[in-house]
Amino acid sequence: MAKRIDVSDLNVYYGAFKAVEGVSMTVEPRSVTAFIGPSGCGKSTFLRTLNRMHEVIPGGRVEGKVMLDDQDLYAPSMDPVMVRRTIGMVFQRPNPFPTMSIYDNVAAGLRLNGVRNKKTLDGIVEQSLKGANLWNEVKDRLSKPGAGLSGGQQQRLCIARAIAVQPQVLLMDEPCSALDPISTLAIEDLINELKSDYTIVIVTHNMQQAARVSDRTAFFNLKATGEPGRLIEIDETTKIFNNPNEQSTEDYISGRFG
C-alpha cells in the first residue's frame, strides 16, 4: 500500500509571502525520509503541502506539482479531504481528542469513513494499537480517556489513529520533540517497524534521530530571515552525514551553524 511521492518545482506561499521555493524531490516507498534544517527553513511547511494541510492556514497555497504514484494531488478534481485520508499525519505535540476514549480516538478516522460495524472496528483498533506498540499498555483500559496517557503513549496513540485508516504515506512533524528520551526511543523503534508497510516522511530537529531512523535525508536552508526556504540537497542518509555535496550541509551537520 505504500506509494512514491514525486515533487517537482514546488513553491509555497502564505498570502504574498513565499515560504518555500523550488523544491523537487522523490520520496521512495517503504522507506524513511528525514527533513532536517534550521528553524524557519520551511521543512514543516513543505511537509504540510504533501497532504494539503497547509491549506488549513488562511492564505496558504502552492505552485508546482506533487504526484502520489500517478495521482496529481493538486489536480482541480482532487478533494483535499481525500488526500488527507490517503496521507496521514502525526504532529509535534500529541493531540488525541480529549473528549474521546482510547478506543474512540483510534476509531475516529474509521468512523469518518463510515465504518460502523463493531466487529470490524474492534479488529482494526486492536491491530492499529498493536502496530503502534501500545496495545499491551492500554488493552485493559480502552474506554478510559486518551488524554490520561503519558506524553509518549499519547503520541503512539496518535500514530495508531493515523495508521488505523491505512494511509499510503505517513507524515511526521517533529513527533518526538515534546517527548522524553525513553518515549522517543519507543517512537523511533516504531518508525523502523512501520517503514516495511508505509512511506514515512519525518521532520526532525534532532540530527542523531535523522541519522538513526532515516534511509534518506533532505537538508533545507534559507539564505536569510524573510527569504524563502530551499531544498539544499537530498541523498542517502549516510552520504549526507559523512560526505555531503554542499558545504552548507556539512556546516550544519558538523554544528558550525544552526
Partner: peptide, 19 residues
C-alpha cells in the same frame, strides 16, 4: 491541534466541527 488532528484524518469541515 485538535482541529488539525481531525482534518489530518480526512475530516470535512463539518466532521472536524463534530469531532
Amino acid at each position: 491541534a485538535h482541529k488539525e488532528g481531525a482534518l489530518a484524518l480526512g475530516a470535512t469541515r463539518w466532521e472536524m466541527i463534530r469531532t
